[in-house]
Computed example of a mutant assay.
Amino acid sequence: MSLYLHALAAILIREALRFVTQRERFLAALVRPLVWLIVFAAGFRAALGLSITPPYQTYITYEVYIIPGLCAMIQLFNAMQSALSLVYDREMGSMRLLLTAPLPRWWLLFCKLLAGVLVSILQVYAFLGIAYLYGIKLPPMGYVWVLPALLVSGMMLGAVGLFLASTIRQLENFAGVMNFVIFPVFFLSTALYPLWRMAESSRLLRDICAWNPFSHAVELIRFALYMRLNPEALGWVALTFAVFLTLAIWGFDPARGIMTRKASP
């Protein structure tokens, strides 16, 4: 057990040092949601009316509605950046060296995943702090309740990133894959619009948003911010995490994953 914990601590420290030395990454993670909150939300406020839907007990402004979606967006981008660094580490050889450690491969990948999630949680709380100063005040205990939700949603999105990293051989190909994944996943979700609003435009779009695992991550965070649990969202997020983590572990298997692909012509 001490060997397992030592590996976990080493990977966490490595990711923390990388996060501290890459301040631009921290600032970039905050710029995107702040642009949506300050610029786009101001323009959409008059055009998008929001009814009283759970977990809200009164009418809310559009800025309040998109806060959970922007928190999930931070985690989504961080998951893709962590996957990008994983592809880079694989090309430079450090990831291959890590996977040769005398520990189960699933544990090493889990440690890498957890380290990235903790970084994303720090970024989310920094964003929530700025939103508070901007005037978006949430229930005080919601900032505590949201922590487990951020951990679960971050693990799910990180598992998706791990799976993508296991399928991509070259660093140059990852940027296109990121755009192909991030934008459809984000815009076809409840991050920016409620399901009933999507249904008014297209029933098909509404169904896509309802089945999108990212929507369930957003709703899990949304309910947690108001000290409520969404069991359906939690179930879907946990299921998605288990599926993609299993696929990622399979993808990094030496007999099937990166070792074989690197050796192939």
Score class of each variant (00 low, 15 high):
55 P>Q: 02
229 L>E: 10
243 V>E: 00
169 R>A: 11
123 Q>F: 08
94 S>Y: 14
240 T>W: 03
93 G>E: 10
159 A>W: 05
219 E>Y: 03
140 P>K: 11
125 Y>G: 03
75 Q>C: 05
167 T>C: 03
110 F>A: 08
110 F>C: 08
132 Y>T: 15
50 L>K: 00
258 I>R: 05
163 F>A: 06
232 E>K: 13
152 V>W: 02
64 V>Y: 13
83 A>G: 07
36 W>C: 01
99 L>K: 09
80 M>W: 00
87 V>Y: 09
170 Q>C: 04
122 L>T: 11
191 A>G: 01
31 V>S: 02
265 P>I: 05
146 V>C: 10
1 M>S: 15
63 E>V: 10
180 F>V: 09
224 A>F: 04
56 Y>C: 06
170 Q>L: 12
164 L>P: 01
19 F>A: 07
263 A>N: 07
155 M>H: 06
77 F>T: 11
138 L>Y: 10
196 W>E: 13
6 H>R: 15
160 V>A: 03
164 L>A: 00
51 S>I: 08
227 M>P: 04
133 L>Q: 10
94 S>A: 13
78 N>R: 09
37 L>N: 02
87 V>E: 01
197 R>H: 12
80 M>H: 00
101 A>P: 06
114 L>H: 12
232 E>F: 15
237 V>W: 05
35 V>G: 01
164 L>N: 05
65 Y>V: 07
155 M>L: 15
154 G>N: 05
42 A>V: 12
171 L>E: 10
172 E>W: 00
194 P>Y: 00
155 M>V: 12
121 I>K: 06
195 L>A: 03
83 A>K: 07
15 E>T: 12
215 S>C: 07
9 A>H: 15
209 C>L: 05
4 Y>V: 04
252 F>L: 07
137 K>N: 15
232 E>P: 08
